[in-house]
């Protein structure tokens, strides 16, 4: 599960003027490698701004995976059948795994895990604002899989070709695993729409109504309001623009909604023959900004749950380390 285009949010200072002829030469060589479609590895020289952009984007992506476990974890004990519970457990475990792959990728750039966690826990780092919405009914589980994971996959597939190789490798692994997340969600909804009671069908429609707009916001602000996008495109960190991905997602989802028998809550959504795409209504970006800034329905609850889990686990981490040290000393003696 991914995140909106996080690369648009940072406030990094502009890249510093180059200091020396040697650095200019390194920069030139780096640019040439990017232009040639080469991958950059952890120990290769890279511009400081490239490194910072990646640490920010990868760690925010990792935080999103970890915080993303919370809205779904909410339903594990209340899943309607053992089968659905096993599926949901596997999915939440996957999100944890995806967070770990991504933290490891960010650490190759010189950030420590403790620093990354600290940034999340103190609220300095952002995570995807989609996880600040509540999961009110069982239909939310299916809808998150279908729409939120669907949008995530659309966002993530191009990152498999990211110029920074450790990130690209993590993304390939994640995308391979993620497909089940979307399919299980759609299937859960289809089951309710096909075999469910009228009340259950209404529950699905309600969930779709609540998740639709936040889902299409996941692609990030419109292209003309994404100041960092051009640089990320130049560096091969970003491959496809926010608006292009959003359009692709909407076009794919409309037919799926028909198959499911639900409507999408946008009266302006209609096929445009000339564009061979769907037109859609105006997105309320003030809501996006508000939730991202901390004023969503669940921001405080999510962060508090995460910090509590971390604090409550402190004694386990310390005890495991103390045990390992003791065993190592015994062996040395």
């Amino acid at each position: 599960m991914y995140t909106q285009a996080m690369d648009t949010i940072g406030k990094d200072e502009a890249p510093k003027a180059l200091r020396s002829a040697e650095e200019a030469q390194l920069q030139e060589r780096f640019d040439a490698r990017i232009d040639a479609g080469d991958f950059i590895e952890a120990k290769d020289w890279m511009p400081e701004h490239y490194r910072k952009t990646l640490v920010r984007q990868i760690s925010q992506h990792a935080h999103s995976e970890i915080v993303g476990m919370l809205p779904e974890g909410n339903w594990i004990s209340r899943a309607p059948t053992l089968k659905r519970k096993a599926i949901l457990l596997a999915k939440v475990q996957d999100e944890g795994g995806h967070g770990l792959y991504l933290y490891a990728a960010a650490e190759t750039l010189g950030a420590s895990r403790d620093q990354l966690f600290d940034a999340l826990h103190t609220g300095k780092a952002k995570y995807s604002s989609i996880f600040n919405y509540p999961t009110l009914s069982w239909a939310d589980m299916g809808t998150i899989g279908w729409l939120v994971d669907g949008a995530a996959i659309m966002n993530q597939v191009p990152i498999c070709r990211c110029s920074y190789a450790p990130y690209a490798r993590a993304m390939i692994r994640i995308c391979r695993e993620e497909s089940f997340h979307q399919r299980q969600g759609f299937e859960a909804l289809l089951t309710m729409m096909t075999h469910g009671t009228e009340a259950q069908k209404a529950m699905v429609q309600d969930a779709v109504n609540r998740w639709w707009w936040p889902s299409i916001m996941m692609f990030g602000p419109p292209d003309d309001e994404s100041p960092n996008s051009a640089q990320s495109m130049r560096w091969g960190i970003k491959r496809v623009s926010n608006d292009e991905l959003r359009q692709k997602f909407i076009d794919a989802t409309v037919d799926q909604a028909k198959l499911l028998g639900v409507s999408l809550p946008d009266p302006d959504l209609k096929w445009n023959e000339a564009r061979q795409s769907h037109d859609f209504g105006t997105i309320d970006w003030s809501e996006f900004k508000r939730v991202l800034a901390g004023d969503g329905p669940c921001n405080k609850e999510r962060l508090a749950a995460r910090v509590k889990a971390w604090d409550d686990g402190a004694w386990v981490r310390e005890a495991a380390m103390a045990h390992a040290n003791k065993q190592a000393m015994k062996e040395a003696a």
């Binding site: 770990l100 650490e107 981490r317 495991a320």
Partner: peptide, 23 residues
């Protein structure tokens, strides 16, 4: 296939299994 943090070798093997061989 990747890296992870663990207190000792035994834990690293176990977490390696959990993180990298779920399928």
């Amino acid at each position: 296939c990747g890296s992870l943090h663990a207190a000792d070798a035994k834990m690293a093997i176990q977490m390696g299994r959990d993180v990298y061989t779920r399928r």
